[in-house]
Design a protein around this nucleic acid. Structure first.
Length: 407
RNA sequence: CGGGGUGUGGCGGAGUCUGGUACCGCACUGGCUUUGGGAGCCGGCUAUCGCAGGUUCAAAUCCCACCAUCCCGACCA
């Protein structure tokens, strides 16, 4: 993409409302724009990042056998009455002109369960794993911290349907591994810990994926031996010891939840009367699991972790571009050629073809955080090379023109 | 929803205490000179000072209600 054609611009200063690092840098870099508290637009660069995260998650969900759907955002009151969740305070409610009541989707068990029920009649149809990417709406009392707690936010939610608990348990473990793959590919592996949380009425525990960070709004108790954590509600029950190894040597850390998986058992299949025939022809109630990741929160979390005083430092797989090509001086012809070459090879490159000073381009490049900066100048061209600067390490090297695609 | 803070050109700020009709930087625009870390000079455009009442000869400034927004708390992906 030619930077001169990008309709957004970087900002020298961040909007005064933004206090969190993620919102400051994402706003300044031209990734997002705040419409109101807790609600953001994704600008072209931001959408590229969001789609990269989406593709990572989609890839991992496909690997465990997930089938992608897209459910409505507008949902009827009846479904929520059936499960007694119409009363939930964070649910946005609205009426049409005939006074019929609806809510905006904040989670989708009430929609997916009767949907799958329409098609699944036999144990032979199971298991089923269905997921979607969708904006969710939650009437938070206080939206805050930029992308970390929004009122409207992008979420992946997967729902699994099983004939029995044993099947649910084994899939649940596969999802745990899939989630770690997602966080690893987003550059958050080191900071992210499986965390035991309350399982509600139907399971001893649910599991959160908590990312340890100073800006976190949660607190976890981390066992260094097991690399597993428990959240605040569990720590009391476990008498301040690790539920796995019983060690009392737990470290308190601030953290943010980047994912959550939950065994729902029959919480939703029961009210909808979702049963299938087993081998004997008897009716059997299904069990369910649900598995969520907030994509927009994840995007913010990546920025909170991967930045320096000059701006964002995107991990390779979520970066909007692989290269930031910057001509310095009168070398537009040669830079154009390199750009075309990279484009043809299908390599994602942002080409700063704007008529700006070198310093401004470098500052913007650091702010935007594209992993590899390629500078083309008379100096580098003398050596038939471009200068490569890695955003993360700051390492600078000369790369022959013929070798650029191999970086 | 409780406590606290803030609303001034597109963005960031000064001016408010002490009332006299709005200033600075950035951005934008025209010209010339620049071109490896947010260039320089000259000229130009952009504001019913969040909104509504009130006090006053006169309100960005004082009073009041409302709205928006941020932080802390409670609640939550």
């Amino acid at each position: 993409m030619r930077q001169s054609e990008l309709f957004t611009k970087t900002l020298r200063e961040s909007p005064k409302e933004e206090v969190s690092i993620n919102a400051k840098l994402l706003s300044r870099g031209g990734y997002i724009d705040r419409l109101m508290a807790g609600v953001y637009s994704y600008l072209p660069l931001g959408l590229l990042v969001l789609k990269n995260i989406e593709n990572i998650i989609r890839d991992e969900m496909q690997k465990v056998g997930g089938q992608e759907v897209l459910l409505p955002t507008l949902t009827p009151k009846e479904n929520w009455m059936k499960t007694d969740r119409w009363k939930y305070p964070e649910m946005f409610k609205l009426r049409n002109r005939a006074e019929k009541e609806y809510s905006l989707g904040w989670t989708h068990e009430e929609i997916i369960t009767p949907l799958v029920q329409k098609f699944v009649n036999s144990y032979k149809d199971l298991p089923v794993y269905v997921y979607q990417f969708q904006n969710k709406f939650r009437d938070e009392l206080r939206a805050k911290s930029g992308m970390l707690r929004g009122v409207e936010f992008m979420m992946k939610d997967l729902y699994s349907f099983h004939r029995d608990e044993k099947d649910l348990d084994s899939f649940y473990l596969r999802m745990q591994r899939a989630y770690f793959n997602v966080f690893e590919r987003c550059g958050l592996k080191k900071e992210t810990f499986l965390t035991l949380a309350s399982g509600g009425a139907f399971a001893k525990y649910s599991h959160e994926f908590q990312m340890v960070t100073s800006f976190g709004e949660d607190e976890i108790y981390l066992c260094k031996k097991c690399k597993i954590a428990v959240n605040k509600e569990i720590i009391e029950e476990e008498k301040h010891s690790c539920p796995q190894c019983k060690s009392k040597d737990l470290e308190v850390k601030k953290s943010i939840e980047v994912g959550n998986i939950f065994k729902l058992q029959n919480r939703f299949t029961k009210p909808f009367g979702f049963k299938v025939k087993d081998e004997k022809g008897d009716e059997k109630e299904l069990v369910m699991g649900c598995y969520g990741i907030g994509l927009s929160r994840l995007m913010g979390a990546v920025v909170e972790v991967h930045n320096d005083e000059n701006g964002i430092i995107w991990p390779a797989e979520v970066a909007p571009f692989r290269f930031h090509l910057i001509p310095v001086g009168d070398v537009s012809k040669e830079a154009d050629a390199i750009y075309q070459d990279l484009q043809k090879a299908g390599i994602k490159v942002l080409y700063d073809d704007r008529d700006r000073s070198a310093g401004e381009k470098f500052a913007d490049s650091d702010l935007m955080g594209i992993p590899n900066r390629l500078v083309v100048s008379a100096k580098t061209l003398e050596k038939k090379s471009v200068e490569l600067k890695e955003r993360e390490s700051g390492k600078i090297s000369l790369v022959k023109l013929a070798e650029v695609k191999k970086i």
